[in-house]
Measured scan of single mutants.
Amino acid sequence: KKKPLTQEQLEDARRLKAIYEKKKNELGLSQESVADKMGMGQSGVGALFNGINALNAYNAALLAKILKVSVEEFSP
């Protein structure tokens, strides 16, 4: 059984999803295209955005690059 995410991890996910929602049209992104760039399925990206799975440093760095932001913008 997976450990529930901490409040901090949930807040990171909320900020990440908000940045994605704000930038997806400008950058021409969908959850599917983000998933392709990350080498995972769309459901995996959804789980990161919705605070189901915790972000690790690798995925955080990859998402920051895809969204053209710094990791600190969603994970201070």
Rank of each mutant, 00 (worst) to 15 (best):
residue 43 S to M: 10
residue 8 E to C: 08
residue 59 N to W: 06
residue 25 N to P: 04
residue 33 S to K: 15
residue 8 E to R: 07
residue 64 A to E: 02
residue 5 L to P: 08
residue 22 K to L: 11
residue 45 V to G: 02
residue 52 I to C: 11
residue 20 Y to K: 04
residue 48 L to M: 07
residue 10 L to N: 06
residue 44 G to C: 13
residue 38 M to A: 06
residue 19 I to S: 04
residue 57 A to N: 11
residue 1 K to T: 11
residue 24 K to E: 02
residue 46 G to A: 15
residue 73 E to V: 02
residue 29 L to C: 03
residue 76 P to M: 05
residue 54 A to G: 09
residue 60 A to W: 00
residue 74 F to E: 05
residue 38 M to C: 08
residue 40 M to G: 05
residue 76 P to R: 06
residue 68 K to I: 00
residue 45 V to I: 10
residue 5 L to I: 11
residue 6 T to A: 06
residue 47 A to E: 13
residue 19 I to A: 02
residue 23 K to H: 02
residue 63 L to I: 10
residue 57 A to E: 14
residue 75 S to R: 03
residue 52 I to Y: 12
residue 36 D to W: 11
residue 46 G to L: 15
residue 26 E to S: 11
residue 56 N to H: 04
residue 70 S to F: 08
residue 58 Y to R: 15
residue 61 A to T: 12
residue 39 G to F: 03
residue 38 M to Q: 03
residue 45 V to P: 07
residue 60 A to T: 05
residue 53 N to G: 06
residue 62 L to S: 11
residue 62 L to M: 14
residue 17 K to N: 06
residue 39 G to Q: 11
residue 53 N to C: 13
residue 67 L to A: 08
residue 29 L to W: 01
residue 63 L to P: 08
residue 52 I to L: 13
residue 66 I to E: 10
residue 20 Y to T: 04
residue 74 F to V: 04
residue 35 A to I: 01
residue 3 K to S: 13
residue 11 E to R: 07
residue 18 A to R: 11
residue 29 L to Q: 04
residue 75 S to W: 02
residue 39 G to V: 04
residue 14 R to A: 11
residue 38 M to S: 06
residue 27 L to I: 07
residue 55 L to E: 05
residue 55 L to P: 04
residue 76 P to C: 08
residue 55 L to D: 04
residue 45 V to C: 05
residue 7 Q to L: 04
residue 76 P to I: 02
residue 42 Q to Y: 13
residue 48 L to S: 03
residue 60 A to E: 09
residue 60 A to G: 02
residue 41 G to E: 15
residue 18 A to L: 11
residue 12 D to F: 02
residue 27 L to D: 04
residue 13 A to W: 00
residue 54 A to Y: 05
residue 6 T to G: 07
residue 2 K to E: 13
residue 6 T to C: 09
residue 55 L to A: 03
residue 42 Q to L: 14
residue 11 E to N: 09
residue 5 L to E: 08
residue 40 M to D: 06
residue 54 A to P: 15
residue 59 N to G: 04
residue 24 K to Q: 06
residue 44 G to H: 14
residue 28 G to A: 10
residue 64 A to P: 04
residue 68 K to C: 09
residue 2 K to W: 10
residue 41 G to R: 14
residue 57 A to G: 11
residue 20 Y to H: 02
residue 44 G to V: 11
residue 57 A to W: 10
residue 42 Q to P: 15
residue 33 S to D: 13
residue 60 A to V: 01
residue 3 K to N: 12
residue 47 A to Y: 08
residue 25 N to G: 14
residue 13 A to R: 04
residue 64 A to K: 05
residue 75 S to T: 01
residue 9 Q to R: 03
residue 30 S to I: 01
residue 73 E to C: 07
residue 27 L to R: 03
residue 70 S to P: 14
residue 49 F to I: 10
residue 55 L to F: 04
residue 16 L to V: 08
residue 22 K to V: 07
residue 13 A to V: 01
residue 57 A to P: 14
residue 63 L to F: 11
residue 34 V to Y: 01
residue 38 M to T: 07
residue 30 S to M: 02
residue 29 L to F: 05
residue 43 S to Y: 12
residue 54 A to V: 06
residue 65 K to G: 08
residue 1 K to E: 10
residue 37 K to C: 08
residue 18 A to D: 12
residue 45 V to Y: 01
residue 28 G to D: 08
residue 1 K to P: 01
residue 21 E to F: 09
residue 47 A to C: 10
residue 48 L to I: 11
residue 49 F to R: 04
residue 29 L to P: 01
residue 49 F to C: 07
residue 44 G to D: 15
residue 2 K to M: 14
residue 72 E to D: 14
residue 2 K to Q: 12
residue 14 R to M: 11
residue 53 N to R: 13
residue 18 A to Q: 12
residue 6 T to H: 09
residue 41 G to I: 11
residue 28 G to Y: 04
residue 30 S to W: 00
residue 18 A to C: 08
residue 28 G to P: 06
residue 4 P to H: 15
residue 31 Q to A: 11
residue 2 K to Y: 12
residue 66 I to P: 10
residue 72 E to N: 13
residue 65 K to Q: 11
residue 5 L to W: 03
residue 53 N to M: 12
residue 1 K to Y: 12
residue 24 K to A: 09
residue 52 I to F: 09
residue 2 K to D: 13
residue 23 K to F: 01
